[in-house]
Design a protein around this nucleic acid. Sequence first.
DNA 1: GACAATACGGAGACTGTCTCCGTTTAGCAA
DNA 2: TTGCTAAACGGAGACAGTCTCCGTATTGTC
Lengths: 182, 182
Amino acid sequence: MRADAQRNYDRIVEAARMAFRERGYDTSLDQIAKDAGVGPGTLYRHFATRDDLIDAVMKAWVDHVEETADKALTHEGGPREVLLNWFEEYVRLISVHKGGPAKITGAMGDDASPIRTKCQVLQSAGGRVLDRLRDEDAVRDDVTPLQVARLVGGIATVADQSELDLVAVRPMLEVVADGLLK
Amino acid sequence: MRADAQRNYDRIVEAARMAFRERGYDTSLDQIAKDAGVGPGTLYRHFATRDDLIDAVMKAWVDHVEETADKALTHEGGPREVLLNWFEEYVRLISVHKGGPAKITGAMGDDASPIRTKCQVLQSAGGRVLDRLRDEDAVRDDVTPLQVARLVGGIATVADQSELDLVAVRPMLEVVADGLLK
DNA sequence: GACAATACGGAGACTGTCTCCGTTTAGCAA
DNA sequence: TTGCTAAACGGAGACAGTCTCCGTATTGTC
């Protein structure tokens, strides 16, 4: 990639990161281009669709997901606490941007989605937590990581749309956790 | 209301009903006006916002909700079957239009929403089912009808966005049901 | 039949998406 | 350094959807 192209690419991603955080995923792309100091043509050449841009913004976020899952695995307490701790972290992770929970959970399991790699990371992170609890024979084994991701993602989506805080979300996570535990 | 106003009102609602069913809630309102044979000004005078139009379209649907809840209450079988039966009906009810689950569940608990009356009907219908199960001491009593509506609505939202069928939704509803039952 | 209130409807302002293509620039080779 | 070419830029503008304004038309009443 040419140096000027790389520079503009980086500027656009940075402008998008700010914009998504402050104004949500449905903010104007032309405005993001303006913020980045480039023309709309340049933005659309680098990112054919809105989702491609979202995907790029999420690159750094992936490392954070892995790290958070590791932390959840070493969490002290019984299976219920471990599970609930992961659920809360999961909700926090996918809620960094307004509209994020719906976007991510909707793409979950869709191999054609531009953000599928991000979904896979999230799913495998959750899978690791689930596997550990299965080793302890603590959770039912007829449920897949994808289903769990959708259950918790659904709660996060509702919370995002209704602007609920984690305190309001907690009881709903508890219902799902109790439904999963043996 | 003047006779011509009433006629146009009805035409718009009917056109919107078709459009929402076939093309989802984000379809063009100007197009709906065109389908109804009126100008956009007429549509916007009757319905200031998209939600107001959605609300009007849902008027007939409310009776159907009541009826479905009554049927769920007389459903044969144990508490788990009654609950799951209601959950499946609930998902079906709020999924009549693409985007419906998100719209309805997002408005749940929001007193300022134009479709709040519809949400209240759904909530009280669910409340009746829950009350019956509580009489049998079958469900935990630290969970509100609103929370249950959000849990099931979250699943319906994900299913709608990921285009999952009821077969795929069922296991997730089971997790929630098991988490709610004592 | 006249008149006032009510309602209509479409032109057009505005915003966002996305493309096309003339212009500019980076990077390389002589 | 200069010249060249492929790569990249960027903004004008086509297109679509939202929503309003206001001149025109219709309704219902006296």
